[in-house]
Design a protein around this nucleic acid. Structure first.
Lengths: 339, 339
DNA sequence: CTGAAAGCGCTTACAG
DNA sequence: CTGAAAGCGCTTACAG
């Protein structure tokens, strides 16, 4: 009956229809269906719920938000959603949010301080109840100020300062990578370490280099680069142009590793035989690449889910603590393993 | 002065502070700064604006939304944000939305009918003013019903029925691919066509096959598959297992093409020499792959931007028409070109 | 040019 | 168990 949605149905409409007061209808609809007779007589409650259901009543968040001061909106800031890792983390966040009756609004900061400030301001103007930052910089000045203003937030993927964060154990991940390459005899390795302001790359690098140090080996060479394919290619280009080039490259990101594979090819090196290359995050691509990529897997979706849950607990007034999830390494052909 | 945000600043607060009525303050702040004396005396206007600025006043969208019935929120439904193409389109949408003072809420449908219904309902419950669907199915029943209910929406990337859509000219893109492969002498080609419910893959395939027909050549074999690496690999596996396998494969998606490259490698075929493989979308990865991938570029970000603008015009009551943007082909080593 | 009032849809003490 | 009232923050005719 293509009944053009002339009018959104409101509490008042339902109340009038049933000869009740809006407050009664509100009480019924807000009380949980299973808690018996609390809000109204069983009969009234049933009639209200039936009609609400039939009319497809959906409370107007402007009304309830204005009244309660709660928007049920969470802001999520990421460097860029077109970064697969962040997109997957965001999917986890949004999934968990939906389960808790929250919705998310997201924005890209492109790891730019000014954009970060502006977008955060925009999210706050929308009256988000809390924020999740996936773009934290190790220089946490911005976050420190925000926390001082009383804004509630949780970090995800990257840590910064003492702010509550859900991350993977990146030091451990770097260590796993080093163990793998050392087991294959690569005493001469290099690291494509990502951006120096991101804890992910920094910690993975520290874990990696740490193990080489412990073993009394010369410290691996460390090169910073953007977290993408072009960045990885350029960094590897530099490493391979060197006279005594490394026999193994650990890139802290799969896309950078793919770029490094390209550079190796340009130098007529067969990856997995002439040189070992490994990545990080174990994106779905890694296993399916023409030459499968050894990588360290991080439970990204779960990290996103937990960040949202942590934030919701923070908003509820609970004490919260940072969480750190364990990474796992999968060896594949790009390091000569499992060919 | 870590002045904990005890209280959000409201129109009333500013009004009281200045000895004015809230309605006056509202009028000043809503009138555009440059239209002179309209809303209040120049002096009053200046005082109001100065204080609002100083206090960092941000109107509460619950208040204005309730009053005006406009949420300034747009809903965006995509199959999955972890699909790079959709993530980039979404970035374009969000960018344009920001410029128009709109915010977006997004949700994944995973191309599942029931999820699509539920998530759309959730977005509508949030009182989005309009929707952008990036997950349209050629079977447009769901969208037809939505349109009949008076919901305003625009499609992006995939078309369906007569609903307004911003897409690339996928038929033309498929044709460009066929021209490229035919110019290289590949009379025996196959298509990895993606999901049969998505207009993108269907149209690209139709354009591709159409040119072969026009030239009086046998119709290329067409295989459907998921739009990802694993899907492309499986489809290529089938094609290459065949006795008279094709000399060229056109995958309607770069990730599927990468999967196909993997399958070719498993068959000891050197891509670009023993077999030509090309993709679609020209994702940033394509050019940077160890073996660079020939691909058809689509202006995804621009498509996203235009979809948002189109929707905003629709919401303003304008007549709107679908838009179709032109694709371009870049030849690379994977088809033996430009090695 | 500015004020005063009404009302958007909702929730929540307060009565009875 | 149910009603009546107040008020969240805002905008917008309507006066004057």
């Amino acid at each position: 009956m293509a009944d053009s949605k002339a009018r959104q149905v409101t509490l008042r409409f339902i109340a009038d229809e049933l000869g009740l007061h809006v407050s009664t209808v509100s009480r019924v609809l807000n009380g949980r269906a299973d808690d018996g007779a609390r809000a109204a007589s069983g009969d009234t409650a049933t009639r209200v719920r039936r009609l609400a259901e039939e009319l497809g009543y959906q409370p107007d968040p402007h009304g309830s938000g204005l009244r309660t001061g709660r928007s049920k909106l969470i802001g999520v800031l990421v460097p860029r959603l077109s970064d697969l890792v962040l997109a997957m983390i965001y999917e986890g966040i949004d999934e968990a949010a939906g389960e808790l009756g929250l919705a998310t609004i997201t924005a890209n900061s492109r790891d730019d301080e000014e954009t970060r400030r502006l977008r955060t301001r925009m999210l706050l103007a929308r009256r988000v109840e809390g924020l999740i930052f996936g773009d934290a910089s190790l220089d946490s000045g911005f976050l420190d100020r925000l926390a001082a203003d009383g804004t509630k937030f949780v970090l995800v993927n990257r840590r910064a300062g003492d702010h509550p964060a859900v991350t993977a154990d990146d030091r451990l991940g770097g260590r796993l990578a080093a163990e793998h390459l050392l087991a294959l005899g690569h005493v001469d390795a290099a690291v494509i370490a990502g951006e120096p302001y991101a804890s992910t790359g920094v910690d993975r690098t520290a874990g990696f280099v740490g193990l080489y140090r412990e073993r009394g080996l010369p410290a691996p060479r460390v090169l910073h680069s953007p977290f993408d394919t072009a960045g990885g290619r350029a960094a590897a280009e530099t490493l391979l142009a060197d006279a005594d080039r490394p026999t193994a490259i650990f890139a802290v990101n799969d896309f950078a590793a793919i770029g490094a594979m390209g550079a190796a090819r340009d130098h007529d090196l067969t990856v997995g035989r002439d040189i070992a290359i490994m990545g990080y995050n174990d994106t779905p691509l890694a296993a399916e690449l023409p030459l499968p990529l050894t990588s360290v897997a991080v439970p990204v979706r779960e990290i996103g889910r937990r960040a949202l849950v942590l934030l919701s607990r923070l908003l509820a007034g609970d004490e919260i603590e940072s969480e750190r999830l364990a990474p796992t390494l999968t060896a594949r052909a790009s390091t000569g393993a499992d060919t």
